[in-house]
């Protein structure tokens, strides 16, 4: 695979990978850094890429794994730094922080961040990237039924927490 084919096949995906990374890492620079990592890895292993059925799915998987790894190491660093995970977590979701985000999109963004990883991933792939269930199956390795359940739960959870947060907002 030469640079041209690589550019044709992989680079159009980079927007999608970027959004996924941004959803996980919630930071533009870190997301860019992560997908650069992914793309360079794909590029160095491009000889084997031909053997994969769907390079898209592979790239998405790689991005997801890399982001989760990074989040994990971030959390570890924070724990080592003496800050409690739950504290950080709580801070992220504290109503005061949510109150500060006047923009409802940002609020949603933060709320999605509070969902479990798998819910996040499925919700993101479906509602933002508009993946079909088959494509989500390919990326996550989950069954169709499983995906539907997770998706439904994620959507309801998002709605609930949004209502809660906006109510809180309205009340104050």
């Amino acid at each position: 695979m030469d640079l041209q084919t690589f550019n044709q096949r992989i680079l159009p995906v980079q927007g999608r990978l970027f959004r996924l990374a941004q959803m996980f890492l919630r930071n533009r620079e870190e997301a860019e850094d992560a997908i650069q990592d992914v793309l360079l890895r794909l590029w160095t292993n491009r000889q084997q890429l031909e053997t994969y059925q769907s390079i898209d799915a592979l790239a998405v998987q790689m991005t997801k794994n890399l982001c989760l790894d990074r989040l994990k190491s971030h959390r570890n660093q924070k724990t080592e730094g003496g800050t409690d995970i739950s504290e950080v977590h709580a801070k992220e979701q504290s109503p005061y922080a949510l109150l500060e985000s006047s923009d409802s999109s940002r609020l949603i963004h933060q709320l999605i961040g509070g969902l479990p990883e798998q819910h996040k991933l499925v919700l993101h792939l479906r509602d933002v990237e508009e993946y079909s269930f088959e494509e989500i199956e390919e990326v996550t390795g989950l069954t169709n039924a499983n995906i539907r359940v997770i998706l439904s739960r994620a959507r309801q959870k998002l709605r609930e927490s949004y209502l809660k947060a906006s109510n809180y907002e309205n009340e104050h």
Binding site: Q14, G15, F18, R19, Q22, M23, A31, E32, I35, S104, S105, L107, I108, H109, I112, D127, V128, E129, E130, L158, R159, Y162, S166
Partner: peptide, 14 residues
């Protein structure tokens, strides 16, 4: 809000 977010998020690019 969430549908707005989904549509907006889709426009994000590196």
């Amino acid at each position: 809000a969430q549908f707005g977010y989904f549509a907006a998020a889709r426009e994000e690019y590196p």
